[in-house]
C-alpha cells in the first residue's frame, strides 16, 4: 500500500499536469480581450507566445495564423505576412483555406491585384463550404475590378455583387489630364471632380496671394513680394496637381464603393470559443 506521503505527492503531480489545458484556456483570455480592445499588436504577440509554447506543429500553425489575423486587423500586413509564412510552414494542409483567404486579403491591402486574384481562385478551389466559395468569388471579382478587367469581374457573380459591377461599368470616370488642365484656373480642377469646398478654398487662396503680389509690387516691397511669389507658386502648382489628384481620387472612390458593394460588409472571423481548433464564422 502506498504511503500517505506518496499519495499526496502523486495527487499534487496529477493536479499539476491536469491544470495544463486549463492554463492554456486561461492564456486565451488575454489575446482575445486585447483584440476586443483594438490592441491588435499586443494580441498578436500573445498568440505568438502561445505558438512558441506549443509542441504540436498544426496547433502552433493555428496560433501563428491567429497572430497573422491580429496583425492584419491592426493593418500591419508585412508582419501578418511573416506570421502566415510560419503558419504555412507548420500546417500547410490543415490551414490551406484560411491561409489562402488571408494571403488574398494581404495582396488586396498591398495593391497586388494579380496575387489577390490568384489566392482568391486558390481559395475557391480548396474550399468545400459554400460560404468560402462565396468569399472567393466576390474577392476574385474585386481583384479583377481593381485590375481594370470589368468583364472578368462579373463572371460567376449574381445578385447584388453583379449589380455593383454593372453599375460601375455604366458609370464614368474623371479624366486626370482634364482635371490638370482645368486646374490652370485655380479651383476649377477640384470643381471638375465635384470637390466644391476645395475649389472655393483654392480660388480664395490664389486670389489672396495674387492680390498680395500686386500690392507689394506696387509698393516696391520686393522682399515680401519674393516670399509671396514663392507661396503663390506653391498654391498655383498645388491647384494643377490638385486637379489631377482630385480626378484620381474621384475614380478611386468610385472603384472602392463598387468593390465594397461586391464584397459585402462582413468578413470571416475566427471563433473565439473553439480556438485553437480554427473555426471561421461568416455573416453574409
Amino acid at each position: 500500500m502506498m504511503s500517505t506521503r506518496s499519495s499526496v505527492l502523486l495527487t499534487v503531480v496529477t493536479v499539476t499536469l491536469a491544470t495544463g489545458p486549463i492554463r492554456a484556456a486561461e492564456a486565451l483570455i488575454l489575446p482575445q480581450t486585447l483584440e476586443r480592445e483594438g490592441q491588435h499588436h499586443l494580441a498578436a504577440l500573445e498568440y505568438r507566445r502561445l505558438a512558441l509554447g506549443e509542441t504540436d506543429a498544426p496547433h502552433a500553425g493555428r496560433w501563428y495564423w491567429l497572430a497573422a489575423h491580429a496583425y492584419a486587423a491592426g493593418n500591419d500586413w508585412p508582419l501578418a505576412g511573416r506570421m502566415l509564412d510560419q503558419a504555412e510552414d507548420l500546417a500547410p494542409l490543415e490551414l490551406a483555406v484560411p491561409l489562402s483567404w488571408l494571403r488574398a486579403e494581404q495582396a488586396l491591402a498591398e495593391r497586388d491585384w494579380a496575387s489577390a486574384e490568384f489566392y482568391f481562385e486558390s481559395l475557391g478551389h480548396a474550399a468545400d463550404a459554400a460560404a468560402w466559395r462565396e468569399v472567393a468569388h466576390r474577392g476574385r471579382a474585386a481583384a479583377r475590378l481593381y485590375r481594370g478587367d470589368i468583364a472578368g469581374a462579373g463572371l460567376g457573380l449574381e445578385g447584388e455583387p453583379l449589380e455593383a459591377v454593372e453599375n460601375y461599368a455604366a458609370g464614368r470616370n474623371r479624366k486626370p489630364w482634364v482635371g490638370g488642365l482645368l486646374g490652370l484656373v485655380p479651383g476649377l480642377g477640384y470643381g471638375y471632380s465635384g470637390e466644391t469646398g476645395n475649389a472655393l478654398r483654392s480660388l480664395f487662396l490664389n486670389s489672396l496671394f495674387i492680390w498680395g503680389l500686386v500690392e507689394t509690387a506696387e509698393d516696391d516691397q520686393w522682399a515680401v513680394f519674393s516670399v509671396l511669389a514663392f507661396a503663390e507658386f506653391t498654391w498655383y502648382s498645388g491647384s494643377i496637381y490638385g486637379g489631377i489628384d482630385a480626378a484620381h481620387r474621384y475614380n478611386q472612390r468610385r472603384l472602392d464603393q463598387a468593390v465594397k458593394r461586391i464584397r459585402g460588409e462582413s468578413r470571416p472571423r475566427p471563433s473565439p470559443v473553439l480556438v485553437p481548433v480554427l473555426t471561421l464564422r461568416f455573416d453574409f
Binding site: 477640384y190 469646398g197 498645388g238 491647384s239 496637381y241
Partner: peptide
C-alpha cells in the same frame, strides 16, 4: 512636394 503640400492644405478642412 510643395505642390502636394498646397493640395493637402486646401483639402485639410474637408
Amino acid at each position: 512636394g510643395f505642390s502636394l503640400l498646397a493640395d493637402r492644405l486646401v483639402r485639410e478642412p474637408s
